[in-house]
């Protein structure tokens, strides 16, 4: 399979980190830890795929973490503080996040502002709004809405295996991954999205509505950040508006880059993004299990990202370019 071949490096890296973590730390190879890892990988992959779509157009979205916070905080806020029904609150929050994405897209395509700038403003703006809206108070479900929270908390039993059950968040991820993969390779819009990222001017000269597709990518990214934020809050139950989702955009972008997306646009791999997310999450997990101290977390992730990207570039130069 093409996906496997392209992502061989990442698979090897993932296996190496797993082997190191398993041989030095106790507790890595437990069903509980595996379930935890799959849960986190699934949640962060949803953000990563959104980031990947924007990166595919040659843009960037720095507002992911703040949208995670806004959506994640607003959901219990509407449900608990304002007594909305889940049937109203969930679609409303998702619609607002999608609209924020459309706003990013329009600012980038119509006003021709730099994506970095637009989404940096988003990063600050949405965080501020989330904190102001809630008086900076922690928001949570207070033990209610367990049915809703089960979307993220349920575990699917696998026949024949006793202690391990698959976290339910794996299901939306798989659906999203398959859908996005097919969208990019099989649909007109998907192919045009990649063409736009590959050479925007050539795309325009070919009659591709580049502005519409770029806007679509920002909308998808913000929507997925909103959906992801909701799943995160279902998972953890309550969160602080001041720190919930901090740096999540960087995990998403790092995963996309590790997974083979070119920041120049035109190249994206859904499988790569999921593997990239898995590498980052296993790494975080390993740091804690090996007792390295969580202070080192960012340093280790930064180092691995740098090595991974450099190794990829070196390999690309040495392997003769084929057709």
């Amino acid at each position: 399979m093409n996906g496997v071949k392209k992502n061989l490096g990442l698979i090897v890296l993932l296996v190496i980190i797993c082997v190191i973590a398993a041989s030095f730390g106790s507790g890595f190879l437990t069903a509980y830890n595996a379930m935890n890892l799959i849960q986190r990988t699934a949640l962060f992959s949803i953000l990563g795929i959104g980031a990947g779509l924007v990166i595919a157009t040659g843009g960037i979205d720095l507002s992911i973490g703040s949208i995670v916070c806004l959506a994640g905080i607003a959901t219990p806020w509407l449900l608990v503080e304002h007594g909305w029904s889940p049937w109203a609150a969930v679609p409303a929050v998702l619609a607002v996040t999608a609209l924020l994405g459309v706003g990013h897209g329009l600012l980038v395509t119509r006003l021709r502002l730099q994506p970095f700038l637009v989404t940096l403003c988003g990063l600050l703006l949405y965080r501020g709004v989330a904190r102001w809206m809630t008086d900076d108070q922690s928001q949570g479900f207070r033990g209610e809405f367990t049915g809703l929270r089960d979307i993220a908390l349920a575990k699917i039993a696998i026949p024949g295996i006793e202690s391990f059950r698959l976290p339910a968040t794996a299901v939306p991820l798989i659906v999203l991954a398959v859908f996005t993969g097919l969208f990019l390779s099989r649909t007109v819009w998907g192919r045009w999205l990649l063409a736009t990222g590959s050479n925007e001017s050539a795309a325009r000269h070919s009659g591709i509505p580049t502005a519409r597709l770029t806007t679509l990518a920002y909308m998808a990214c913000a929507f997925l950040a909103g959906a992801g934020g909701m799943l995160f809050i279902f998972d953890i139950g309550s969160a602080q508006p001041s720190d919930f989702g901090n740096f999540y955009e960087l995990y998403a972008i790092a995963a996309a880059v590790l997974g083979g997306c070119s920041l120049r646009g035109g190249r994206v791999s859904v499988v790569g993004i999921i593997l990239g997310t898995a590498v980052l999450q296993v790494l975080r997990n390993a740091i804690i299990l090996l007792g390295l101290g969580s202070e080192l977390e960012f340093a280790v992730i930064g180092g691995v990202l740098l090595i991974g990207v450099s190794a990829d570039e070196v390999v690309r130069r040495w392997v003769p370019r084929r057709g």
Binding site: R191, A195, S198, N199, S201, A202, A203
Partner: peptide, 15 residues
Amino acid sequence: DGLFLGDPVAVNVSV
């Protein structure tokens, strides 16, 4: 303004 240089000919032709 015309070509997707890094992409295969087939992709460039059908776009």
